[in-house]
Nucleic acid binder design. Sequence first.
DNA 1: CTTACACCTGTGTCCAAGACACAGGTCAAG
DNA 2: CTTGACCTGTGTCTTGGACACAGGTGTAAG
Lengths: 180, 180
Amino acid sequence: MTKSRTNSLDFLSGLELMIDSYQGKEQIFGVNPNPAILRLSCEEGCVKVIEMARRLGVTADTVRFYTRIKILKPGKNKANGYREYSEKDYNRLRFVLSARQLGFSVEDIQEILNHADKKKSPCPTVRRLIDQRLNETEQRFAETLQLRERMQQAVVEWSQKPDKVPTGHMICHLIEEFSQ
Amino acid sequence: MTKSRTNSLDFLSGLELMIDSYQGKEQIFGVNPNPAILRLSCEEGCVKVIEMARRLGVTADTVRFYTRIKILKPGKNKANGYREYSEKDYNRLRFVLSARQLGFSVEDIQEILNHADKKKSPCPTVRRLIDQRLNETEQRFAETLQLRERMQQAVVEWSQKPDKVPTGHMICHLIEEFSQ
DNA sequence: CTTACACCTGTGTCCAAGACACAGGTCAAG
DNA sequence: CTTGACCTGTGTCTTGGACACAGGTGTAAG
């Protein structure tokens, strides 16, 4: 139950509130196979998109995005069509955000969730994917490092050089004479 | 949030800007200083898209892309509609590729070229833009560095941990117990 | 009751720099 | 004549949302 709640702040107190108020219905909500009762508890425990977003420190657009691509599957209030995000959606979204922080793509996350939804361990997939993504990140890191150095050197070199008007075969001498 | 892979830095990969590795037959591009003769010689000296691409070490799609957005303005062979890239286009594209290597966006480059085309010095613009882009690159660099460290630490930590099957409130303990 | 306003819905489009696909035209060799 | 390599312009795809839009809903104030 105790989580790494290190990376987010005030919406986590909201989380505790929500989980606590939900405590008494745990049997009904997650475990009880009767969908009628499940829906019943939703009326009290579920939240709308903005509240969901606020609790996890993202925008409503982000919540809608993950809903659109069916990572989140909130119910719908029959009366007005509003989405109803449950604790399960909350946990799922929190998971998604954690995974994104670790460099997983949304597609990766879908794959991971597919395993978990089938009650299979997603861990082997997770290990495979992070190796892959880490390689790419190393690659990107090296490229960004090089680009940064190149740009820094350009700024230094150019500070010694004058402005010039373009000629027939030279558009900008700063850029074109920069060797590296 | 982590913008990870989406920061297309791909243009940096592998290409050392192999511009003048071509020593071939026609000495026309890059050697003849007289633009009038060059323009005149277009019927003979101009090249088609693939040859242009080859000379600068990029794909034909890249040449077409810059043509499409009107950074390159090759003529058209009236007989068959084929594009005819002149030495001016060659110089322009070489400039574009150099500028891309320094982190300028295509939009930046259009702005720079607009100045140059009006015979104004693009240098003040260039200096302003590189400051801006360098800032962004520093930012991206810091983010990539952090992401990389986070991922590396995850791999290390996870190597000590077992696989687990998901439970009601835990999708993947590796990801969800990872604190940082 | 009306009105204002904040919230909600789904859908479509945008971003960057090309890469890729596609339908159709051109050209030289065999 | 056919094959195959090349050419054309245009449209769509990529990421992870952000933003726009048209229209419906809920609520408090006047």
